[in-house]
Design a protein around this nucleic acid. Sequence first.
DNA 1: CGATTCTTTGAAAACAGTCAATCTGTGTGG
DNA 2: CCACACAGATTGACTGTTTTCAAAGAATCG
Lengths: 195, 195
Amino acid sequence: MFEVFETYIQAKTRLTADELQLIRALSVERKFRRRELILQEGEVCQFKLFVTKGLLKTSVIKDDGTESVMRFAAENMWTTEHQSFTYQTPSTVRIEALEDTEVVCWTRDDMRALLASIPAYKSYIDRLIDTILGDVHHRVLMNISYTPEEKYQAFIADFPDIFRRVPLHLVASYLGVSRETLSRVRHAQLRQAKG
Amino acid sequence: MFEVFETYIQAKTRLTADELQLIRALSVERKFRRRELILQEGEVCQFKLFVTKGLLKTSVIKDDGTESVMRFAAENMWTTEHQSFTYQTPSTVRIEALEDTEVVCWTRDDMRALLASIPAYKSYIDRLIDTILGDVHHRVLMNISYTPEEKYQAFIADFPDIFRRVPLHLVASYLGVSRETLSRVRHAQLRQAKG
DNA sequence: CGATTCTTTGAAAACAGTCAATCTGTGTGG
DNA sequence: CCACACAGATTGACTGTTTTCAAAGAATCG
């Protein structure tokens, strides 16, 4: 699995063999089965995960049982519960595997050590966070100003590799519309694409 | 104005007199009138702003003239167009003063220089970004799972110092509901509070 | 297969959005 | 200082959309 990460990170930044070796030494490889929980509500998030294979879902479950999907993470994407990971506090979200999934991950302390000792890696992470910030701003704008049709189109455009692999009702939850509405939206768009 | 920033930053992190002096040396103080544009769509965002007095609004105007408010920034809050500032690309958003406003600000290059030479300042900014990330995740969750009533309550709880100073229709835009709906929501809540 | 999960569909209800008109307060200029 | 203009808020009636509920149909996994 680490090889996938290695390929990815080499494309993003220039690391020496020693630096990469250090990152590898502190990494942990883990596998999860479909439906397996990576993180449960109330637990402290111990790892920052890099997905090398499969698909993860981060979500919040309300008291009434309603689920809100915060995030999907497929190959070559990072995921973690930022708050819980950074401050080692109980998580309010859960992370679950939607497919059999393989990840490479690091604990907070190991991550800190790596970032402190490898400037190029730190600066890559800084750029990554810039990107995340841009993405989430885009998502907010979509949330407050798009119609359901536009939201679904944006989702397809933003996650071309993911949208076919995720059950529609989870996409609906991610977008903040009901599954029935999204089903109808998609149906209408399919008809339009044909006609 | 710098004094306000100084008080703020000293409470957040420990800086030496020299470091603070350096930060001051590169800072620019600016004042804006109510309704004045700080940043226009298409312009490159030259500054990262720290508000010492007043209130700013960041928003996006769609082709049909509809405005979506992305963010408010009052005293002791930072604001900038992250994408435009970081990569010096044209901004898709505008920033406007809702009140007469005073800010302390820094250009990207000066900010970079400061962060590179003052580790404590860099680490403060890193923590700040952690906070922003948490805030915006909270906002997304609110967007996709709260009712208009809950959104308004959350806004009041999140911005107790701001909500009274902002026209209701801008709050509505920020929350992604129509101004009429928010007006009715607020009315109902006032009645409830009395009864 | 057999059971679960997921999707679709229809009909009804609830809801928020739109439109239009009015009301309020504020600030500006004569 | 007044009057007028303007930005903002409210209200009612209406429209349109989305949610909800319920049931049936498809797909998928074990």
